[in-house]
Design a protein around this nucleic acid. Sequence first.
DNA 1: TCTGGGGTCCTAGGACCC
DNA 2: TCTGGGGTCCTAGGACCC
Length: 432
Amino acid sequence: MFALVDGNNFYCSCERVFQPRLQGRPMVVLSNNDGCAIARSDESKQLGIKMGAPFFQIKDLERTAGLVALSANFTLYGDMSARMMSLAAEMGPEQEIYSIDESFIGLAGVRKTEITQRAWDTRTKILQWTGIPTCVGIGSTKTLAKLANYIAKTTDRKPGSYPVRLGKVCNLVDLNDRQRRLLYENTAIGEVWGIGRRISKQLESSGVETIWQFMQLDAGTVRSRWSVVLERTWRELHGQSCISIEEAAAKKEIAHTRSFGHPVTEITELASAITEFATRAAAKARKQNSNVGQVLVFARTSPFRVKDTQYSRSIVVPLSRPCADTLQITSAALAGLKRLYKPGINYCKAGVMLLDLQDAAIHQSELGLFDIEDAEKSKRLMKAIDAVTDRFGHGSIQLGAALLGKKKWEKRQERRTPHYTTSLAEVAIARA
DNA sequence: TCTGGGGTCCTAGGACCC
DNA sequence: TCTGGGGTCCTAGGACCC
């Protein structure tokens, strides 16, 4: 048995904890550069705002419908997430943190008759201790727990949207066959975890529109017409558990990419951006104790600027020896940038990805004596840099190249709320 | 004028090598 | 007329997820 605990409209809910006046109002949280809506409150969904809607297209609603739009405050959301996750973990013996606002709970060993009550208790505690509303879905597989969570969220938002009475907790195991069938007949196949736009379109064109219809296919057909991956989803819907709780593992790739606040043409400015991106990515690699084998750098135009000459290119630069040294990673990225740079182009986005990551603890036996000395020196320097960054924040210590150029590329972010929970200077003030 | 970022997995063609 | 096969790397892109 599995549960999925999911924060409702998570980013919006985090903001509402510290600005209660936002309760009940239509609000959205915007992506970097205040570009598009990445989180919506129920009220803004009702206004018809779609996920990913460009802000400039919905800006009028600020005036006409009282919409509140905030810049993303990821520092706040990350901290609130950690608080929520530690409480969700109490629901069962295993937890897999699946995203910033969701975690799967493995319920092996928990009495079946107690599970639903535990879910309610967990949800209540998270709401009381953090202010974040959640929904909990429970099923005999992870896919069913996800589905149950979707159903709970949907009925929570619009009571009566399903022919079965449900609340913020949905345990599919508590339902009888007739009730489950009603739910499956009333849910589009595209809502299932792992079935995206493309596959649901293919299914629909062969007459499969609901979960119930999909479940009536036979496993062999699903495998031969689609894939073993979709067959696994089919089995999971039938209650056969194929996907287990996963341990937190080191990332296989680490990326730091940004759209620019304004288009950039000069290589010095691109170099300043790439230097900062590489610095941030290298720090992430050290945080998970990885060495980097290859550095990918890319730069591209914006497909939305249709009059611009379009250009997009990426280059992979291997490191002579895997390391997590900011200087080496940055110089590899800059070498790649030099090779892909073409003058006269309006670059709108660039990034650095670290590939071929390997555990830094694995001893590099082929290192010579001088290499070892170098590696030790580098490790000490990086440790010092990380300590300064932890204490004073990103950007408090940086490479010279990051400071060159006019930084036209820097993000615009005009509506960010304070770092209420992680910075003493910005902590929330209570007034009597 | 203004359109996100971070992941995983898979496929496929061309270059290059033996 | 007939024109290898297999492996790896690079690059690009597409599917899915949040």
